[in-house]
Write a protein that binds this DNA or RNA. Structure first.
Lengths: 269, 269
DNA sequence: TTGCTCCTCACGTCACGTGAGGTGGC
DNA sequence: TTGCTCCTCACGTCACGTGAGGTGGC
C-alpha cells in the first residue's frame, strides 16, 4: 500500500535514483548503455530511462565484478557468456596484483628513502633530489616484504578468535597427514600474518607457555573506537581502552587467548 | 679515433638508437617532443632528429622522475620550473601509494578468499562465484596495516645488527629525556618493523631473557642465497642454511643477538 | 514561472600503440 | 634495387568527466 504503488515510477527507477543509490554517476550509467553492458528495460513517456529490479540486480553484479578489478569488457563477457571462464581470469588477476604489489612496495620504499635522506625539515631542491636518486640506484632491492609470525599452541582456536573478535580476515589453515594444523594465515590490511605451532627445536612457544611475550603486533585501523567497541562486544580481553598516546597514536590494547598482545591504533592528526 | 667521429651522426643520436638504448619506443620520443617535454636539439639534413648528450641527460632525468610515479606533466614542471616543489609532491605521492597498497592488498585478499572458498580442483561457474562474492561483502574494511613489534633489551644494538648483518633499512630511534631508546624502527620491504623495550608491566621480554620466543619474522627476499652469503660474511648466527622447504619456499634462518628468530625466504616456482 | 532532473551529442583525458603513406641514407 | 630507419598525420585506447543546448514533470 505504498503511495508510489500505482505511479508510473513504480515500474522502474530513474537514472538519477539509480546513480545515487549505487554511488555511480548518471554519465556512467549512460556509458554502460552505450557499450551494451546495461540497458534500462523501459522508458517513460517522456523518454526517461526506467530501470527495473532485474536491471538493478544486473547492475549489482556488474559492480561486484568490477570491484574484483575486471574491466567492463570482462564483466560483460562474464555475465553474458556462460562458457566464459571467470575462474581462470581471476587466477591470472591475482598473479597480476602480486606483481603490482611488489612494484608499488619497492617504489614506496625508494620514495621513503629518498625523502628520508634529504628531509631535515627543509625543502629539498629538485636538483638535490635528483642527485640523491642517482646514488640510490645502488640500493639493495633484495628485501621485498615482511611477515610477522605468532606462535600458538592451538592454531585453529587462535585463527578463529582473531577473525571473530578482532575482525581480521580469515586465511588458510594447513594440516599435516594426521590432521594437525601446522601453519595458519590471517589477512590484516596490507598483508598477512602467519600462525606457527610451538616448537622445542626452534625455541618457539606461546606467551601462555612462556609467561611473557617476546613480540607483539600493531594493527593500524581506520577507527580505533569502533574497533574497540566491536572487540569488547565479542568478549575481547582488553588490556587498556583507547587513549591518545604521547607518541602520536590513538590506541588500545588487548590479549588473545594465548596471551599474544595486540595494539589497534591510528595516527593522531 | 672512433670511425664515427666525423660522420654527421656523431653530433647526435638518431631516435631509434635512443629508443633502444633507453627501452622507450620511437613513438614515445615523438610524443615527448609533441608535449614539449624533450626536443632533439638538432635535425639532420634529411629532417631526422638528432639527440645530443645534453638531450640524453635530460631524458635520463625524465626517466628517473617517471620511475618515481610522476606524470609527464609533473616531470616537465619539476625539470623546467626551479620553484616547483618536488618534495611536497613526492610526500603526497607516498601517501597515495599507501592508499593504493592497502586497496590492492585488500582486493588480493578478497580474490584469494573467493578462489580458495570454491577451488577444489574444479572450475567454478560464474554464478557460483557471484554467490560467494555476495556472502563476502560483509567483510571488515577497518583494518589497514599490520606492523610486527619485536622486544629487545638493547634496542640500539638490535637496530644496528639488523641493518648491518641482515641488510634491513635503517629507521629512527626515539629516546626519552634520559637518553634511553624507547622505540625503534626498521624498514623491511613493504613496510616497517618496530623494536620495543622490555616491559614488566605488559609482560614483554626478549627471547634471551625468556629462553624462547613467542613470535618470529619472515622476510621475503628476491635472492635467498645472496642474502645468506652476505649475512654469513657479516657474522650472522645461522640456524640453518638455505633449503627448499616442502611448503613451497626456499628459506634460511638466523638468530639476532637477543635470540629473535628470522627467516629469509622466497617462494619456489 | 522556478528548480530540478532528464535527454542527446560531443570533446577531453593519459601516454602512448598502431597503421597509412611517403621520404632519405647505406 | 632491396632493407632498414626515418618522417608526418591521425585514429584508437578506457571509463567515464564535463559542458552545451534543450525537453519534461512537479
Amino acid at each position: 500500500m505504498d503511495a508510489n504503488e500505482d505511479r508510473p515510477e513504480s515500474v522502474g527507477r530513474k537514472v538519477g535514483e539509480v546513480a545515487s543509490a549505487t554511488g555511480l554517476t548518471v554519465r556512467a550509467l549512460h556509458y554502460y548503455e552505450e557499450i551494451g553492458l546495461l540497458e534500462s528495460s523501459g522508458r517513460s513517456a517522456g523518454g526517461h530511462r526506467l530501470y527495473s529490479s532485474t536491471d538493478l540486480a544486473r547492475l549489482y553484479r556488474i559492480r561486484s565484478l568490477q570491484g574484483l578489478g575486471l574491466s567492463l569488457a570482462e564483466v560483460g563477457r562474464a555475465l553474458d557468456d556462460p562458457a566464459w571462464h571467470l575462474g581462470s581470469l581471476l587466477t591470472r588477476h591475482v598473479a597480476d596484483l602480486d606483481r603490482r604489489l611488489v612494484a608499488t612496495t619497492q617504489l614506496r620504499g625508494r620514495l621513503n628513502h629518498l625523502l628520508g635522506s634529504v628531509e631535515t625539515g627543509r625543502s629539498p631542491a629538485t636538483e638535490e633530489l635528483l642527485d640523491v636518486l642517482e646514488e640510490m640506484t645502488m640500493l639493495d632491492t633484495n628485501i621485498q616484504r615482511r611477515i610477522g609470525i605468532l606462535v600458538y599452541a592451538d592454531l585453529e582456536r587462535a585463527h578463529d578468535h582473531l577473525v571473530e573478535v578482532f575482525g581480521l580476515g580469515p586465511g588458510q589453515l594447513s594440516r599435516d597427514e594426521d590432521g594437525n594444523v601446522v601453519h595458519g594465515e590471517i589477512e590484516a590490511g596490507d598483508g598477512v600474518l602467519w600462525l606457527h605451532p610451538e616448537s622445542e627445536t626452534y625455541g618457539l612457544a606461546s606467551p601462555h607457555t612462556l609467561g611473557a611475550a617476546s613480540a607483539c603486533v600493531a594493527v593500524i585501523v581506520d577507527d580505533v573506537d569502533a574497533h574497540h567497541a566491536r572487540a569488547v562486544e565479542k568478549g575481547a580481553d582488553i588490556v587498556y581502552a583507547p587513549v591518545d598516546q604521547p607518541y602520536g597514536y590513538r590506541e588500545y590494547s588487548a590479549r588473545d587467548p594465548e596471551g599474544q598482545l595486540w595494539s589497534f591504533m591510528k595516527p593522531l592528526d
